[in-house]
């Protein structure tokens, strides 16, 4: 990034363009690769818990608002569990190679 002192403008433009081009196709690989088993476990746990927490909050709020005491909470706990698993799936699977 900081070594573009010498050379004509054309050369530097060329260099910048190749740099951009070599950057562009590389997809986001995420922060994986160096994760320890412990780290993975903690991340999975946090993903599951946070999805569940959000869905419980939504279900509880809807129940409170609509006065349908247990039903939305029960529904959203199930959905939250599914969303947590979806999060973990997305975390563990490599990004789709499209």
């Amino acid at each position: 990034m900081s070594d573009d002192k010498g050379g004509s403008f054309e050369e530097r433009l060329q260099a910048a363009q190749t740099r951009q081009a070599s950057n562009a196709p590389a997809p986001a690989s995420g922060a994986k690769g160096t994760a320890s088993p412990m780290g993975i476990g903690v991340r999975v746990g946090i993903e599951l818990v946070s999805a569940l927490a959000v869905s419980v909050a939504i279900g509880w709020g809807l129940d409170r608002w609509l006065g349908t005491r247990p039903w939305f909470l029960a529904l959203f706990v199930l959905l939250g569990g599914a969303a947590g698993v979806a999060n973990v799936w997305r975390l563990m699977m490599p990004r789709s190679p499209r």
Binding site: S50, I58, A83
Partner: peptide
């Protein structure tokens, strides 16, 4: 709903971590 919950759980997991 699952995708929406999954999207909304991002800030929660980010902050809890």
């Amino acid at each position: 709903p699952i995708e929406v919950i999954s999207y909304l759980s991002r800030p929660v997991s980010l902050s809890i971590r």
